[in-house]
Nucleic acid binder design. Structure first.
Lengths: 151, 151
DNA sequence: CTTATTTGTATCGTTCACGATGCAAAGATA
DNA sequence: TATCTTTGCATCGTGAACGATACAAATAAG
């Protein structure tokens, strides 16, 4: 009944969607042990690279909208992981900074990248094939975030 | 401040997560024109391949839990896209079947795969590179869905 | 034939995603 | 200076995801 182009096994998006969900699930036990979710972990990665950033910079880095990031940051603030204060130069900005607890989480989580990395290793995913995968995914992301593709 | 392994640009998961979100967003204008969401479109792909399946079979095919699929199916039932009826052989099952409206959606959506497909084409994503990408993603999915990886 | 276990769905609560909208501060224009 | 536009963030509503839990039908064990 289904035409060729509708076969689930031919869909790139379904594969990306599934791989993304399953890999996020792999992070779950490691992160929830520290009371974190995966998107919250991404915020930590951004702030560990550069502390004290406005909401907008964090959102842009993660390619998310502020209406996704704002509630996320509020929950993390309630957990004592970070603080949010009005910008001094620009009063519209909210500057997000790590608390000592937020900075310390890096030590608690130091084995996470390697642990998850080893979980995906298999015949098709090796230190040799990953760089190519990165390049391809970056191509997709670049193409779609350009919005030059609008129909 | 951040150690090498925590750099956002080195994370496979962030790339998958972002590529998945952006590609799903690319579907949005095409699907919402028919009142559909992307996960609902996936359910249609499954049912177009084989009509009248129990909830569990649909969930397994999509690698989702029934607690995700059940509400989704109920919304689609409310839209008149499909019907849910108790199984005759096994009264625990709910057999999901397409309505004429659900079957007709395939015609309305026939250009969707090609349209989205063309949206991702770029230097890094070509008819030559996509099969390799499929293989790698299938490897990741196979590895993680096996649950042999449990920490 | 009971009782125990497994299986198939559903319900509930929390946290994203994200379109739509609101609003105040900052910057541009008249 | 007064008005207009843009920018940065927030609020709201809806629909996923998913862990935890509940429950009835089917199956297995006694």
């Amino acid at each position: 009944m289904a035409a060729e182009e509708f076969l689930l096994d031919r869909q790139l998006c379904f594969r990306l969607y599934t791989a993304s969900r399953l890999l996020t699930q792999a992070y779950h036990p490691l992160l929830s042990a520290q009371g974190l979710t995966y998107p919250q972990y991404l915020v930590l990665l951004v702030l560990w690279e550069k502390d004290a950033q406005p909401v907008n910079d964090i959102a842009k880095r993660l390619l998310l909208e502020t209406n996704t990031v704002t509630p996320l940051l509020k929950r993390m603030e309630a957990e004592g992981i970070l603080t949010r204060r009005k910008g001094e130069k620009d009063a519209r900005q909210m500057i997000v900074s790590l608390t000592p607890k937020g900075k310390n989480l890096q030590k608690e989580l130091k084995d996470v990248p390697a642990t998850v990395g080893s979980a995906v290793l298999c015949k098709e995913v090796t230190p040799e094939t990953v760089p190519g995968l990165f390049t391809t995914l970056d191509g997709i992301i670049g193409q779609l975030s350009n919005k030059q593709h609008e129909f």
